Lab assay of single mutants.
Amino acid sequence: MAAAAAAGAGPEMVRGQVFDVGPRYTNLSYIGEGAYGMVCSAYDNVNKVRVAIKKISPFEHQTYCQRTLREIKILLRFRHENIIGINDIIRAPTIEQMKDVYIVQDLMETDLYKLLKTQHLSNDHICYFLYQILRGLKYIHSANVLHRDLKPSNLLLNTTCDLKICDFGLARVADPDHDHTGFLTEYVATRWYRAPEIMLNSKGYTKSIDIWSVGCILAEMLSNRPIFPGKHYLDQLNHILGILGSPSQEDLNCIINLKARNYLLSLPHKNKVPWNRLFPNADSKALDLLDKMLTFNPHKRIEVEQALAHPYLEQYYDPSDEPIAEAPFKFDMELDDLPKEKLKELIFEETARFQPGYRS
């Protein structure tokens, strides 16, 4: 834990890192770190609560700039109880001085990944967590956004079992017609939660990839272990087919990539493993919904509104309290091709509203 900075004593240090967030945020305490930044909790002297502050230093890398800009653009436009918001952003007053960006968010005690390492969940908890994931996802999908990296560590939890989806750095506007060349190379989302079509096709992607990830998360809540822990690309596919069985001819016809289709045709026939054999203690309604989410063919996979209306979630289902976005989200430009200098300018502009004396 960093010592509390005395008023006016300059930035606090946390594990050798400068955290320049005073005077409003003090009493910093280390939480963890990701690929390009550290997260601390801090005391907000204005709202009198502890908050989470993520320090991001992305400006050396085009990919990190892209992810940072995506996350900020999306989260500043989203407003939903099951999606983490941005409360404040701290950065230098000029673009030349801006080396880091500090993002202030609600402090959540833990995440689903940490929880599943230590606790076996009751059916009631599984049901409530799944409902909140789908409630947040309904809003995301209504904005025409794909999260693309749903996994237990991106689901934040607090002691009252509130759940918030975080990390929109890989999110995209849904565009089933656009052929994202190089899709697989830039697709760094965790393999275990990846839909089979991501490994088999490169053309376009749809909201059904997020539903697949939610199915993987439900299976993990039922058993405290990942359902498809593939060691590499082909191993991942083999794990999936080992449980779902061989795809039907109709399902194979959806695979545009001939090499991928021929690979699947070359494999020995596998039978589907019954879900109640894998999860003998699970609620039968939970397994019915799991089956509809972990469907090989993305066109037959359940959609988020149908999933919310499934009998497993009937005690929570309330369409009048499951809000959607006001308007579909649009990125003005494809960020993939922009140089990091341009992305830095866009991050600077996007964060201006939090600067003292800002006038829109």
Rank of each mutant, 00 (worst) to 15 (best):
G34M: 07
T160C: 06
T181R: 07
Q132L: 00
Q236R: 05
R172F: 07
Y317I: 12
K340H: 10
L287F: 09
Q306D: 13
G16P: 07
W192S: 02
P323W: 15
V188L: 02
Q62P: 04
V39F: 02
T26F: 07
Y358I: 02
I209D: 03
P226S: 04
D336Y: 00
G215D: 02
A9D: 08
Y128G: 11
K300M: 00
L308K: 12
R191Y: 05
I217C: 12
I198P: 08
P280W: 09
D175K: 07
K300Q: 09
S246N: 06
I89R: 10
R359H: 10
N201T: 08
I198A: 08
D332P: 14
Y187N: 00
A325E: 03
S122R: 01
C254S: 00
A9K: 13
P93I: 15
D337M: 12
S266P: 14
D291V: 01
E322K: 03
R148D: 03
K73I: 00
K151T: 02
L308I: 13
L338R: 14
I95M: 11
S223N: 09
N297D: 08
G357A: 05
H80G: 10
Y131Q: 15
L267V: 11
Y139I: 07
C216V: 07
L137M: 06
V21N: 07
P247E: 06
R301K: 00
R70S: 01
Y113G: 09
K259G: 08
G37S: 01
V173M: 02
F329T: 13
D175M: 06
L130V: 12
F183N: 06
P196C: 01
L222S: 06
L258Y: 10
H178G: 07
A286T: 02
L289S: 02
I133P: 06
L116S: 11
N47W: 06
V18R: 14
Y187T: 07
G230W: 06
A2Q: 15
N253S: 07
G37A: 03
G215W: 05
G10E: 06
I302A: 05
K292N: 01
I227P: 10
V49Q: 09
S41K: 11
A7R: 05
N158Q: 08
V18W: 15
Q132K: 00
L200A: 06
T110E: 04
K48S: 10
F354P: 13
I83G: 14
L252W: 12
R359S: 00
K55L: 08
N224K: 02
A327E: 09
K300S: 09
L107P: 15
P11H: 00
L343Y: 09
T159A: 06
G215S: 02
L156Q: 00
H61K: 12
E12F: 15
T26G: 11
P229S: 01
V145H: 06
Q119E: 11
V101I: 08
I165Q: 05
G245S: 02
H269E: 06
L170P: 04
H120Y: 07
G34Q: 12
N238M: 09
N257D: 03
E197T: 04
N257T: 01
Y113Q: 12
S142R: 13
T68E: 10
F279H: 15
I103S: 05
S284Y: 13
S142C: 11
I324N: 05
T181G: 05
Q132P: 02
Y25C: 04
Y43S: 09
R261P: 03
D124W: 12
K300F: 11
K114Y: 03
L241N: 12
N47E: 06
C216Y: 01
Y358D: 08
N276M: 14
F331C: 13
A171I: 08
E350T: 15
N224T: 03
V173W: 10
R191D: 03
R67L: 11
R359P: 10
E322Q: 14
A52Q: 05
R24Q: 12
I84E: 05
T26W: 08
K272G: 09
I89N: 03
K54A: 03
S122V: 13
N281I: 00
F296Y: 01
G34S: 10
N253M: 05
E220Y: 06
Y317G: 15
A174C: 11
N276T: 13
Q17F: 12
A6K: 13
K231R: 09
F228C: 10
L287N: 09
Q306I: 15
D251E: 03
G230V: 01
I103D: 06
G169R: 06
P280D: 11
L69K: 14
R15E: 09
E81A: 11
H299D: 08
N224G: 08
E33R: 10
A327G: 11
E96F: 13
V39E: 00
G242A: 06
E305Q: 13
A3S: 04
V304R: 05
L121S: 05
I140Y: 08
L130N: 06
L112F: 10
D210G: 06
N297F: 07
P11Q: 01
K164D: 10
F78C: 11
E197R: 01
R15A: 08
L290K: 04
L200N: 01
E60G: 11
E109P: 14
V173S: 03
N253I: 00
Y113L: 10
P311A: 14
A189W: 03
D149H: 04
H299I: 10
Y43E: 13
K292E: 09
Q355S: 06
G357K: 08
Y36C: 04
L200T: 09
R50G: 06
M333A: 11
F348L: 00
L267Y: 13
E60S: 14
L200C: 09
Y102N: 00
L237G: 02
D177V: 01
P152N: 08
V14R: 09
G85H: 14
D179R: 05
E305A: 04
E303V: 03
C254K: 11
I256L: 06
E350H: 15
L218T: 05
P311C: 14
H80E: 14
Y187F: 00
N257A: 10
I95D: 13
S153T: 12
V173G: 03
M199R: 05
V21D: 08
C127P: 11
